[in-house]
Design a protein around this nucleic acid. Structure first.
Lengths: 192, 192
DNA sequence: TTGCCCCTGGCACCGGGTGTCACTAACGTC
DNA sequence: GACGTTAGTGACACCCGGTGCCAGGGGCAA
């Protein structure tokens, strides 16, 4: 059989993203994604542990970069500031990748099954952030404060992403900064 | 057939909770839960749209009560304060129900499949909170601020629940108040 | 060529979830 | 008391996501 171009993970991701975007995540079977990518269903599930994971690209690398940014953060600046800055920096994508990012995030945040699954992937981020805060404050990572900072900043970041998807004009960084500023400042614009 | 006591939804919930607690959510099949509750698998899925939903009890009622509390909140006090107060009040369970609540929440927050599913149920809460904030600020509920308040307070509440589960000593209300105070005050204890 | 290893596909299986149908108990009506 | 209606239940068949297992096949070293 003529092998129809070397498949490769990236090829499968594109096929999945396209199909999910056009017809919705639930209404596309893993069989269809596999067919469309020219591989078998069995092989699809060797590339990705889950149908949902086909949407996330190199998220593990994303988390790793965040971890490095945190490790390299200036110990003099406040922890919360470091975390927010790292979030902004790790999400500073080159212009060319923005359409792809939009596609991914739109799926993740609007398709119920993917939104549910996202909790598991985002939990990886939370653990990284919580560990950093714990290290900086000299408290256990399982304590309230590290977890709280992780959960709150992640909530702000997710909300910023939603706003960015709905907006289209302003940059992602602008939305992130605004969300972080509101939250870490105790929601100043609510004291009206 | 002798019908073995009128089954009823509550009976099934107990059976599910017990089995999941003892053997883990993933390692118990819906068949086993149904058998243990004296009903058929098909009937189980008429009580609950999902295996995961068997853990949540009357969560819809919980959300409704939160909504009512928000609607009845003093318009003079700051929005954020109202939201946090409503969260605390809606989670003011009578002593006798605390063991059950612990069981539920421990499962939801530690079992990966249930944690993922929780995103969908908690999103109902977010919508209620966001609508309230939107109404109070005269902005659209899809704007950044209402969503941000909803996501942040929910993150704080979830973290408080985790701490409460791990702690065992202090009351749930105490954990909630602490988490809300930290977050809405801009994490004062990080400015050390 | 031989042997090895890795990638792949096929197959059978499990478990969650759903549509459909048949049965039965409960109820009101004539 | 016979009747039709309705709601709840269970059995069955089916779809789909995910996995274990085994059989091929291509590349590569000896």
């Amino acid at each position: 059989m003529p092998a129809a171009l070397p498949a490769g993970r990236a090829r499968v991701e594109r096929a999945a993203l396209d199909l999910f975007t056009v017809r919705g995540f639930e209404d596309v079977t893993s069989d269809e994604v596999a067919d469309s990518a020219g591989i078998s269903r069995r092989t699809f599930f060797r590339y990705f542990p889950t149908k949902a994971d086909a949407v996330w690209g190199d998220f593990a690398g994303h988390v790793s970069r965040l971890e490095e940014l945190l490790a390299a953060a200036d110990p003099a600046s406040p922890v919360l500031t470091s975390v927010c800055a790292a979030y902004v920096e790790v999400n500073d994508y080159p212009e060319a990748e923005l359409p792809l990012l939009r596609e991914r995030m739109r799926l993740i945040l609007t398709e119920p099954a993917l939104l549910a699954h996202s909790q598991l992937r985002f939990a990886e981020v939370d653990r990284v952030v919580a560990r950093h805060v714990a290290a900086r404050t000299g408290t256990p990572a399982s304590g309230l404060l590290p977890r709280l900072v992780a959960a709150s900043t992640r909530a702000a970041a997710t909300t910023a992403f939603e706003a960015w998807l709905a907006d289209g004009d302003s940059s992602l960084a602008a939305h992130l900064r605004l969300a972080f500023a509101e939250m870490s400042g105790g929601f100043p614009s609510l004291r009206g």
